[in-house]
Design a protein around this nucleic acid. Structure first.
Lengths: 190, 190
DNA sequence: ATATAATAACTAATCACATTAGTTAAGTCA
DNA sequence: TGACTTAACTAATGTGATTAGTTATTATAT
């Protein structure tokens, strides 16, 4: 009955790893507790429910992604930077399936803590999009386009929904070509 | 203890309705059984597990969507037909949230039954895309682009992930503009 | 018609969690 | 050192899926 000094962060990183191994839906307090060598009720000394862990995974994921995306855009600009950020998203989401699943229906307007999780990512995104000569209003829409496409595409990849033999990477690249070319038709509009 | 003659179809349509009311994750055998005025173990005379019901919801949804999409494309062609089909997807998925959730990671290569569920939809899609002067290979990629975007965007809508006050319909329309314009840059390529 | 078989209900039981309640030992700090 | 707080623990509850075993109802075959 030693006090293991389990930190909140350890619970989250452990949950992140486990959820990516077994799928977010199969993540259980039992499993997390076993991994930490404690009994599952003991987790309640640190968290209030399994749902709370999933909420924290969501925030954790968006923060981590913000950092990866930032690194990916160092030294580049415009559509090239945007493409790198999309690749960073793809890589992070496919390498951290459980966390990505938790991130899915993030809404930054739900709490200050959530809002903070993407401050960095959003400011980067605006910095990249702003010089493209697209109206602010359309930039807001485009962010939704990108988020919809990226989350949807990766969701399908992660769940083996593409049965075709054709290359997924080529599909992703061509999709970005399509979207970026489409965006160009909005340059100078409004 | 009368034999109510509960058909497989009644189980599915009931599950479809309930899942859209309470969310697919909250759909339970208990709830379905109560709605059908039987006890939950009795359901096992008709189905083998809750997961099987979800699989059947997936197939049911894609079939229904195939019909709605077909109706939407009557009398139109090209990008206009494609746009109507996208609207049909949006409408169906937002009006049948539970079924849509079950449809998410459909993979037609997993079984003959699944493949059949989208035969109609795919033949329609090819009929619409083929005259656009885009290579067959790129058409395959574009289908993934569209599916990724549509599923992702609607997933976000259904889960209130867009907190912004700006119009979701405008975002959807502009997204389709972007994608269709981007597709035009592939006309005559390869 | 009647005996037999198949089916679709039922109740009772098991199992796997999440979560709560109540207890106790381990560290903290005056 | 002694009171306090904390983080473990065990025991208990509740929910829902699933299985086992039973029985009444319907269908089928003689």
């Amino acid at each position: 009955m030693s006090k293991n000094n389990i930190s909140d962060e350890l619970i989250i990183t452990t949950s992140a790893r486990l959820s990516s191994e077994v799928g977010l839906n199969n993540l259980s307090l039992k499993m997390i507790a076993e991994e930490l060598n404690i009994k599952s009720p003991s987790l309640y000394n640190h968290i209030s429910s399994l749902d709370e862990i999933k909420e924290k995974l969501m925030i954790y994921g968006w923060k981590e992604l913000g950092e990866k995306a930032t690194e990916s855009a160092v030294g580049v600009a415009g559509y090239e930077a945007l493409r790198n950020m999309c690749y960073a998203f793809y890589d992070y989401a496919t390498n951290n399936k459980g966390v990505f699943t938790a991130m899915l229906w993030y809404n930054k307007f739900e709490s200050e803590e959530k809002n903070e999780a993407t401050t960095k990512l959003f400011s980067l995104l605006f910095r990249v999009l702003q010089p493209l000569n697209i109206s602010d209003n359309n930039i807001e829409h485009i962010i939704r386009t990108l988020r919809g496409f990226l989350e949807g595409f990766v969701l399908l990849v992660n769940n083996n929904a593409f049965g075709n033999p054709i290359s997924i990477k080529e599909s992703f690249d061509l999709s970005l070509d399509i979207i970026f070319n489409g965006m160009k038709s909005l340059e100078g509009v409004e």
